[in-house]
Simulated assay, not measured.
Amino acid sequence: DIYYRKAKEEGWRARSAFKLLQIDEEFNIFQGVKRVVDLCAAPGSWSQVLSRQLYLPAKYSAESKEEDLPLIVAIDLQPMAPIEGVIQVQGDITNARTAEVVIRHFDGCKADLVVCDGAPDVTGLHDMDEFVQSQLILAGLTIVTHILKEGGKFIAKIFRGKDTSLLYCQLKLFFPTVTFAKPKSSRNSSIEAFAVCENYSPPEGFNPRDLHLLLEKVGSPSGGSDLDCSSGWLEGPNKVYIPFLACGDLSGYDSDRSYPLPKEADGSSYRSLDPIQPPIAPPYKRAIELKKASAQSFNS
């Protein structure tokens, strides 16, 4: 995989770093951003992008002061290895207390940008995966309503399917501009895409505690919403057209194509690099320990 190889060569923890970089190329999401939150951050490739694009340029700028440095908060249930300029919070994005921790790190202010590359362990059953992923996005939206300032942006991974229009309408309640984007580094064979939500504008009088009640009304006959998304792709005047954009340099690498391995500088065959940062507390760690113990017992 060309992006897997390039990620290790350029020092990224995962190939997904290129997805955020390509989204920024198309939407300029980092412009004017001083406070940003990375949800479901582990192993940290998107946090790396945020550090390199926002924190490090400001840190080494001659005009920049300590108090002007961007603040980056990364949240995940799993711990991850440190990244310069990134504050790590080990917590649950569905818990309001996690939002309070973030706001404390921002000295009472709110975020300019929230990104989320989280996804469940996929089953291969697309309807199931799409549903679980949509619930994860709505969990992310729960914390967004607490920590994102008005006018801010929200980027989240989605799985495209028959209910994509419903998710689109739910996001449109809070963001006037919602575009589903497919970075070039995302394989064509994958159902993933990314919701790029701009200009956060919650409904007048909105209380974050009422989020789920509001979302349930979308598409219902009595919901009163201007966006009727009661079923997949609707017909007639209620039909929903979702903006969908392929982003990334079209002359760049194709994620579904195979590329020949280059020679080393000394003319020798290409040597595969180790991953930049293996997970420090993977959920399969106990399984590895049991396997090693079993092998040692067998050998003895």
Rank of each mutant, 00 (worst) to 15 (best):
A58W: 04
N28H: 14
S134G: 10
T94D: 12
L290G: 02
F174Q: 05
V196A: 01
R286G: 01
L148W: 04
E198S: 10
E192V: 05
G236R: 03
Y284P: 03
C116K: 00
D92P: 04
P278V: 06
D249N: 13
F244V: 13
R13F: 05
L173S: 14
V86A: 06
G205C: 07
V240P: 00
W233R: 15
F27E: 02
K239P: 00
L166R: 15
S51V: 06
C247A: 07
F244S: 10
S230P: 02
P221T: 07
D127Y: 08
I155C: 14
S64D: 06
A62L: 13
P260T: 07
L167H: 05
F30S: 03
R5L: 12
L50E: 01
K34A: 11
Q48R: 06
N207M: 05
G152R: 01
S222D: 14
R271T: 15
S186H: 03
G205L: 04
K149S: 09
I93P: 00
Q53F: 06
A287E: 14
K292N: 10
K292E: 14
Q48N: 09
I103R: 13
P262H: 08
S294W: 08
F106Y: 13
Q296N: 10
I276C: 15
C109V: 08
Q48E: 15
L250S: 14
L213A: 12
S300M: 14
V115G: 05
C109M: 12
D127H: 10
A81I: 02
L136M: 13
R15D: 03
L227A: 09
L69T: 10
E192S: 04
C197H: 07
Y168G: 06
E25P: 01
S255N: 14
R187V: 06
N199I: 02
L21W: 01
L273V: 04
N28C: 10
V86N: 05
E25L: 09
D129H: 07
G108N: 09
I147E: 01
R5Y: 01
A246H: 14
M128F: 13
Y259M: 09
P275C: 03
P208H: 12
D92E: 08
V132N: 10
P243M: 04
Q277R: 12
V132M: 11
F175L: 05
E264I: 07
C247G: 02
F18A: 02
L125T: 11
V101E: 13
G11V: 05
D107G: 06
V196C: 02
K172T: 13
A99L: 04
I288L: 12
L250Y: 10
K239C: 12
I72H: 03
Y4F: 15
T142L: 11
K149Q: 12
I280M: 11
L173H: 10
P70V: 08
A119R: 12
L211K: 01
F27P: 00
L113A: 04
F18K: 00
G140W: 03
V240D: 00
V114Y: 00
G85S: 11
S220D: 09
K182Y: 07
S51R: 04
K34N: 14
L138Y: 09
A42M: 08
D121Y: 03
V102P: 01
D226Y: 12
L138R: 15
P243D: 05
E63I: 11
D254P: 02
L21D: 03
I83Q: 02
L71G: 00
L136R: 04
E235D: 11
N188G: 08
A193M: 14
S251Y: 13
S258E: 15
I72D: 06
T177N: 15
Y4P: 00
S251T: 12
